[in-house]
């Protein structure tokens, strides 16, 4: 992108934005999770997301393009002098699960928050990230210390790849949220290192 030729040359490099996605069922604590680590109170934005459905409505055997406006909460963390980490919560409703492409574009990975009493609420997110090869960790939100199932039971119920970390977190606690984000970044880094050594 060229700017006007008389625009001043910046003496220092600008900010480097990076993004992760916080997914999970409605009411699982995504916005709380974002707010626990964000420098700013979580903001809400609206985006139009497009989906395609085939032959399921009255107009017959045609592909229908549907645009829905969905709300997303997000936060921002200044990680160092340049890196700015954005955390985007996915829209909570299941039926938006197939509209996340725009949101996930360029994201490092995802945290899938799980309420162990409503494990099935996380299935759309797991399906989505698995099918697209997006790195993710599963974090069971303890809601103030209460765990209703063991980690192994949850892992089995979710039937996810053994390589995917399943951890507990507390969406209200800054250090727990930090550890959860770090476990995701660890997965991302290991993938990057594996690809690099594979390329050599």
């Amino acid at each position: 992108m060229s700017v006007l030729s008389d625009a001043p040359v910046r003496p220092v490099a600008g900010p480097i934005p990076v993004k992760i996605v916080i997914a999970g069922g409605f009411g699982v604590g995504k916005t709380t999770f974002v707010g626990a680590i964000s420098d700013i109170a979580p903001l809400t934005t609206e985006a139009a997301m497009t989906s395609y459905s085939e032959g399921i409505d009255d107009v017959g055997d045609v592909t229908t393009k549907t645009t829905t406006t969905v709300a997303m909460d997000f936060g921002r963390v200044a990680v160092d002098q340049a890196i700015v980490l954005y955390l985007f919560g996915t829209p909570g409703q299941d039926r938006f699960g197939f509209m996340w492409n725009d949101l996930i574009q360029g994201a490092l990975g995802a945290v899938v928050l799980v309420d162990s009493r409503r494990i099935e609420d996380s299935f759309p997110a797991l399906d989505y990230f698995e099918s697209r090869g997006v790195p993710f960790v599963v974090a069971i939100n303890k809601f103030g210390g209460n765990m209703f199932h063991s980690l192994e039971d949850v892992r089995e119920a979710l039937s996810i790849n053994p390589a995917v970390p399943v951890i507990t977190t507390d969406a209200r606690g800054r250090s727990a949220v930090k550890e959860t984000v770090l476990s995701l970044l660890d997965v991302v880094l290991h993938r990057a290192l594996a690809r690099r050594s594979g390329a050599e």
Binding site: V18, K19, V77, V79, D80, G109, L182, R196
Partner: peptide
């Protein structure tokens, strides 16, 4: 002027290492 996300950020080991160190230090 715009500051775009790094291309192929998931393969940028240096940036990822920096990011991890930064989050750990929060």
């Amino acid at each position: 002027e715009s500051f775009h996300p790094t291309e192929n950020v998931a393969d940028d080991v240096l940036l990822l290492t920096r990011l991890i160190a930064g989050v750990r230090a929060l």
